[in-house]
């Protein structure tokens, strides 16, 4: 890689900064609103902090799009130090505002520095997987067209699965999509929803449901194996598993089951504050790139 490339992304990637093997990265923090007060993720305000508030205080939390001024500030600060900026952001269907801001900033700087916007079609750990895939791409390629093409392949080959203990958290955030079909059951069910990189609609789809966490864990393993068979691969390039707490047995069972799937890079990711807003306690997720 001869070009100097800066990567910008948000802080909803299911990864800590230490888990990203790339020095030139800027992470924007999404605003999180809890009972009408704004917070940003910090050592104090974490996913665990929000979960406790959810459980004890029954708070209502939301997240909003990245702040345009903050994105401009990062570009402005780095425009002369880099040859190219790549912005990896959350699914444009999930946050049209983030997409619009990214597009607007790219156009603002089109005569100053080239910016490639990559719509990950994902949220949370799924964005993290796309980010890691894009880093692999730029480590081996300089050409912008190649980077765009190969990054798009990463997006299309990234799939994320979510075990949501309570879909209401996602529903309140307005991001439930087709997964709404799984709400309102008389039986207590644990839904499995997913974001499929090869689905251009880019919204959550219902993938299954179970009555116990062990059942849904096994179902996700089957879904991943089916996806691998469909894509004719015998091994996963990277897998990132993130738990949002308060459900250790189920998460451990999930982790053990996932370890039975051949994988080049198995990552135990980080639960971030924004993810916790939409998942709620006891939820967990896995993203794979194949």
């Amino acid at each position: 890689m001869d070009k100097k490339i800066l990567i910008i992304t948000g802080d909803m990637i299911g990864l800590s900064k230490e888990q990203i093997d790339y020095p030139d990265i800027e992470i924007l923090k999404f605003p999180v609103i809890v009972n009408d007060k704004e917070y940003r993720e910090s050592n104090e305000y974490t996913a665990q902090w929000l979960n406790e508030k959810y459980l004890k205080e029954k708070v209502v939390a939301k997240s909003s799009s990245i702040v345009k001024g903050e994105l401009i500030e990062i570009v402005e600060k780095n425009k002369d130090k880099y040859d190219l900026i790549i912005h990896v952001f959350m699914s444009s269907v999930m946050s049209a505002a983030t997409f619009a801001i990214a597009k607007n900033v790219m156009e603002m700087y089109e005569n100053t520095i080239p910016i490639i916007n990559i719509d990950s079609r994902q949220v949370m750990a799924g964005i993290g997987n796309v980010l890691l895939g894009v880093i692999d791409v730029i480590k081996k390629n300089d050409n912008m067209d190649d980077i765009v093409k190969l990054s798009q392949e990463v997006v299309q080959n990234t799939f994320s699965y979510y075990v949501m203990a309570d879909l209401n958290y996602l529903y309140r955030g307005g991001r439930i999509g087709k997964a709404k079909a799984l709400m309102g059951s008389v039986l207590h069910i644990i839904p499995i929803i997913g974001l499929m990189g090869d689905d251009e609609e880019g919204q959550f789809v219902p993938l299954g449901k179970g009555r116990t966490f062990k059942q849904v864990n096994s179902q996700i393993i089957d879904l991943i194996k089916a996806k691998m068979a469909e894509k004719q691969v015998t091994s996963i390039k990277s897998l990132n598993i993130v738990g949002f707490g308060d459900n250790n047995d189920a998460f451990f069972d999930f982790e053990e089951k996932l370890k039975t799937i051949p994988c080049d890079d198995f990552i135990l990711g980080k639960a971030d504050l924004v993810g916790a807003v939409h998942c709620g306690p006891k939820s967990y997720t896995v993203a794979i790139t194949i």
Partner: peptide
């Protein structure tokens, strides 16, 4: 009947 309806 109600349970099955709500299950889809």
């Amino acid at each position: 009947a109600e349970i099955l309806k709500k299950l889809g």
